[in-house]
Write a protein that binds this DNA or RNA. Structure first.
Lengths: 122, 122
DNA sequence: ACGGTATATTGAAGATTGTCAATATATTCG
DNA sequence: CGAATATATTGACAATCTTCAATATACCGT
């Protein structure tokens, strides 16, 4: 024959051919789920911009500032702020009529560390 | 009065009170959209595990291996592989009956760099 | 207390995503 | 060619996400 018979090189199974999970899996079910959840929180342009604004002006930005800076209406801003707050990434402090938000650096650093670990394992 | 009148310190507007976008915005509309797109691609447990497996066993893993290692059916594996391939993160090479996937390190590094830049700006 | 402003919540509607059975396509072997 | 295996695609369905108008809540100044 002209074409060489392909043989799957994957080891340690009795069945020749395919589908022997003898390889390195790398990420636990739980690890993947947790990291995916953190990434999902970041994976939205409005939330990224919210974080960026707050990180650089922390403690001095109220919701109306954010609404003015972003192309969405006030309920949408509040919605994303809530997601970020529930995810532990930001916190809000009421000062008078306004609520000032700021990034929680520790949590942000935790995500950064989780990502670094993920990439390190690649 | 006992309570001090709150005054928004945000500068450079003629309107006293609120909503003067004099602060640092930090992320362009486009930058945020692009980064969010990359993050969305990563933000799924199955895709994270696919990447981890492929990164550590690159070029030696066929779809049936992946299906065996993950808690989803074959069409779902193919679906996520397609998303990753369309996103430039992996590539597949047909060898005989099987198609072997591998991570594209450059693209993965690009995402890592984009993330690093994002966190650096925080 | 009242009117005004800031923010949150609710509810609805549309868009996107995730999963899988069924089916199609490609490849190998006999 | 025809059967068997590997992978991709289609189509349907459910779940989740995104946005916003309408409304509610909280606070301020008068």
């Amino acid at each position: 024959m002209t074409i060489q018979s392909e043989q799957r090189p994957t080891g340690s199974t009795t069945i020749p051919g395919c589908c022997a999970p003898a390889f390195d899996v790398g990420l636990t079910d739980d690890e993947a789920a947790q990291l995916a959840e953190k990434l999902s929180l970041l994976a939205h342009p409005i939330r990224l911009r919210l974080l960026a604004i707050l990180a650089r002006n922390g403690g001095h930005v109220c919701v109306c500032d954010l609404e003015a800076a972003l192309p969405v209406k006030q309920p949408t801003v509040s919605h994303h702020l809530r997601l970020l707050r529930d995810g532990g990434l930001i916190e809000g402090e009421r000062r008078g009529q306004w609520i000032y938000y700021a990034v929680r650096r520790e949590e942000l650093a935790a995500i950064q560390a989780a990502l670094a670990q993920f990439f390190a394992r690649m």
